[in-house]
């Protein structure tokens, strides 16, 4: 381990994680592009290292979410069956997919994230409650309530369409393992639209699930010897530090202009990843 490369990796991951944290996203979404585009790190090594930092960030930020009483643990463990299966599939596929394909897929996920930043999440409600007492959510007693401080009381909610949620989560787990991202960006819409969870609940529950999903692929990558401690060590440490800083930024600043700025950053990174997929390097040779 060279001191120079350790310091470089630390700084890059602090930056990527702080940026991700300020956006309310996992660190991986910026980590893998930075490592591959500027650090000339092989994408498979970058993905494996990023998975470790995704785990660290999810675990490090879990406590406040859990204390808030917003996390639905029962929903989380049910959906984790699907996300871990997806993660396993992803690890098996990762070795067979070309670097170009992974860069292209990453670009697509970045663009989805950008479009998601543009459209505000809305609470989905309205539909009359017609319940089938034999549907999955009722049988598994997934319906729950969360404390709403603004209203000063507990808000009860019903969980819907669990099978659809499971299918979407399988996909989220697969993408997470392939790209080394938390893929909260894919989990949260699945929870909002399929399960109809309240926004606060789906954010907290998604964060809780990211750790287990990433651990499933992390264990497999670790056992396969894909995790290089010289890269993953500094990256994980930097991400934990960066996440702490990012949370501070998130509280200090907000606003439309900032959101627009991040959308531009996401699109720019997506374009660069796409060019790399096609074998064109604009920035890569600087490092």
């Amino acid at each position: 381990m060279h001191v120079g490369s350790v310091v470089w990796l630390l700084l890059v991951s602090i930056g990527a994680s702080a940026l991700g944290g300020a956006l309310g996203m996992a660190s991986g979404i910026f980590l893998v592009p930075l490592l591959t585009l500027f650090g000339r790190v092989d994408i498979h090594a970058a993905v494996a290292a990023s998975i470790v930092s995704v785990i660290a960030c999810s675990c490090g930020s879990a406590a406040p979410f859990l204390r808030s009483g917003l996390t639905n643990i029962r929903v989380a463990i049910v959906l984790e069956v699907a996300t871990t299966l997806g993660a396993l599939t992803g690890v098996l596929l990762a070795g067979t997919l070309s670097t170009q394909f992974l860069f292209g897929l990453f670009a697509a996920v970045l663009l989805v994230s950008a479009s998601q930043m543009m459209t505000r999440r809305r609470e989905i409600s309205g539909e009359p409650d017609v319940f089938n007492p034999r549907d999955w959510a009722t049988v598994l007693r997934l319906h729950s309530s969360y404390p709403d401080h603004a209203l000063g009381r507990d808000v009860f909610y019903h969980v819907r369409r669990v099978p659809l949620g499971l299918a979407l989560m399988y996909g989220a787990g697969l993408i997470s393992a392939l790209l080394g991202i938390g893929s909260g960006v894919l989990k949260i819409p699945a929870m909002d639209t399929a399960l109809h969870l309240p926004i606060k609940v789906s954010t907290a529950t998604s964060n809780f699930m990211i750790g287990v999903t990433a651990a499933a692929s992390g264990v497999a990558y670790f056992a396969r010897g894909d995790i290089d401690p010289a890269i993953a060590g500094p990256v994980a440490l930097g991400s934990v530090v960066g996440a702490l800083l990012g949370a501070r930024f998130l509280m200090a600043m907000s606003g439309e202009k900032l959101r627009l700025f991040f959308v531009v950053v996401l699109v720019a990174v997506a374009v660069q990843m796409l060019l790399s997929a096609l074998g064109i390097h604009l920035l890569g040779h600087l490092a």
Partner: peptide, 11 residues
């Protein structure tokens, strides 16, 4: 079990 299967497959 799924996580364990992952480590076995990895090895």
């Amino acid at each position: 079990a799924i996580i364990l299967a992952g480590s076995v497959l990895g090895i």
